[in-house]
Design a protein around this nucleic acid. Structure first.
Length: 113
DNA sequence: ACAATGACATAAG
DNA sequence: GCTTATGCCATTG
């Protein structure tokens, strides 16, 4: 069975362009509401050539929370803006407009098998 | 098995 | 709004 990282990747791949979600939301969808940190780590270790849209995952406040220099905030924000995601003057994303609603459970379940 | 680690979340000051 | 402190959990050495 797929490891936790693998499940994170599969789910994140489902996030449509121009939408964002949070680490905690991903964790909840996977059935581990408390594994938000692990989700963050999974995305951090995502290879750059990967097809996982890691930039679409931000923290629960709608802000970019990466501390990594290589894949820094500037890069992540630029990638999102290219997709049409807007940031306000304080660096927040409006989750009402750009938040991903997620997948219905049956579909998630199918993805995980 | 144990301890450390980390792109989180939440509550409190 | 910002800074700390605490809880959480899969992965790694």
């Amino acid at each position: 069975m797929p490891g936790f990282f693998e499940r994170v990747y599969r789910l994140v791949r489902q996030v449509p362009p121009g939408k964002v979600t949070s680490y905690g939301a991903i964790a909840r969808m996977l059935g581990n509401p408390r594994a938000a940190r692990t989700v963050g780590w999974a995305l951090h270790s995502t290879p750059e050539g990967s097809d996982v849209p890691w930039q679409r995952v931000i923290n629960s406040q709608g802000r970019i929370s990466t501390s990594c220099e290589e894949h820094g905030q500037g890069l992540q924000r630029a990638l999102l803006e290219e997709e049409g995601v807007e940031f306000d003057e304080r660096g927040y994303v409006d989750q009402e407009r750009f938040g991903w609603e997620g997948l219905p459970w049956p579909e998630v379940e199918e993805l995980m098998q």
